Simulated assay, not measured.
Amino acid sequence: MFTFFTSVFSLANARNLLGAGLLGLVFAGWGAAHAQGTVDATKSPSDFVQTVANNALNAVKKDHAVKAGDLARINKVINDHVLPYVNLEKTTRLAAGRHWRAATPQQQRELVEAFKGTLIRTYSGAFTKVDQKSSFSMLPFRGDANADDLVVRSTLSQGNGPSVGIDYRLERTPQGWKIYDLNVEGIWLIQNYRNQFSQQISQNGVDSLITALNERNQ
């Protein structure tokens, strides 16, 4: 049932990659004012990511339980400051690939929730790495600023490790920008999970993937 966890990029490894990417998101405004900013998803992609990051970071810095790894507090920070600006259903759908269409609506909902649990557990480890030496910088935008699907590039400098290049893929929706994928040092999150999800679903079905994710999320 868990054979797909032994692939070259295991889910544990994916968690590490995502953790770096999410750390980049919360580190974006390390030197910014502590007041919560109003997120305007219709602004430029870089400004949008910056504001979301500032708000998430400020919430982390004010809550010692979050930095200590309290899963309930981390869950609240993510629900309040991150998930409203992430298209998690699209992330899950693309990770599941062709298998998404074969899943029932109930299975789709359960898979999104299970994947959400994986992301939250990623945050639980990432937040404990916050230190005053960490810093984040947006890189010059490349591409068509009027595009409906684009990438924002950044670099995360860490006090306890080497700098990491992080790209965020965003889509323009009727409500404004949404984040749905990230690239850490050349590895796209969705593609990494897609290979593993496909193997697990092909062998044992969608329900087995949901069960495997939930069991590892406990």
Score class of each variant (00 low, 15 high):
residue 67 K to G: 08
residue 38 T to Q: 09
residue 190 I to K: 09
residue 82 V to C: 10
residue 122 T to D: 04
residue 38 T to I: 01
residue 146 N to S: 13
residue 33 A to G: 10
residue 130 V to G: 02
residue 50 Q to M: 14
residue 208 S to F: 12
residue 111 L to F: 06
residue 110 E to T: 05
residue 12 A to V: 13
residue 89 E to F: 00
residue 204 N to Y: 11
residue 213 L to N: 12
residue 192 N to G: 08
residue 128 T to A: 11
residue 7 S to D: 14
residue 9 F to N: 13
residue 65 A to W: 08
residue 20 A to W: 05
residue 61 K to E: 13
residue 17 L to T: 13
residue 77 V to T: 14
residue 72 A to S: 08
residue 2 F to Y: 09
residue 137 S to V: 02
residue 40 D to N: 11
residue 83 L to T: 05
residue 166 I to P: 03
residue 57 L to F: 11
residue 188 W to T: 10
residue 41 A to F: 00
residue 137 S to H: 10
residue 68 A to P: 06
residue 203 Q to H: 05
residue 178 K to S: 07
residue 65 A to F: 13
residue 195 N to G: 13
residue 192 N to M: 14
residue 78 I to D: 14
residue 141 F to A: 04
residue 190 I to N: 06
residue 51 T to F: 00
residue 188 W to S: 11
residue 120 I to G: 03
residue 201 I to V: 06
residue 115 F to Y: 11
residue 102 A to G: 05
residue 134 S to V: 10
residue 126 A to R: 03
residue 168 Y to P: 02
residue 142 R to V: 15
residue 122 T to Q: 00
residue 97 G to I: 01
residue 52 V to C: 03
residue 200 Q to M: 14
residue 148 D to W: 09
residue 110 E to W: 08
residue 156 L to N: 09
residue 47 D to F: 04
residue 15 R to H: 13
residue 174 P to C: 04
residue 113 E to R: 14
residue 146 N to P: 12
residue 92 T to I: 00
residue 81 H to M: 10
residue 67 K to N: 01
residue 175 Q to L: 02
residue 174 P to V: 01
residue 74 I to M: 07
residue 90 K to T: 02
residue 101 R to N: 15
residue 71 L to N: 02
residue 42 T to M: 06
residue 176 G to C: 04
residue 59 A to F: 15
residue 84 P to V: 00
residue 90 K to A: 10
residue 217 N to E: 10
residue 193 Y to H: 11
residue 120 I to L: 07
residue 17 L to Y: 07
residue 188 W to H: 08
residue 74 I to Y: 04
residue 152 V to D: 00
residue 170 L to W: 01
residue 54 N to A: 03
residue 48 F to P: 03
residue 143 G to L: 13
residue 106 Q to F: 03
residue 95 A to G: 07
residue 90 K to C: 04
residue 146 N to T: 15
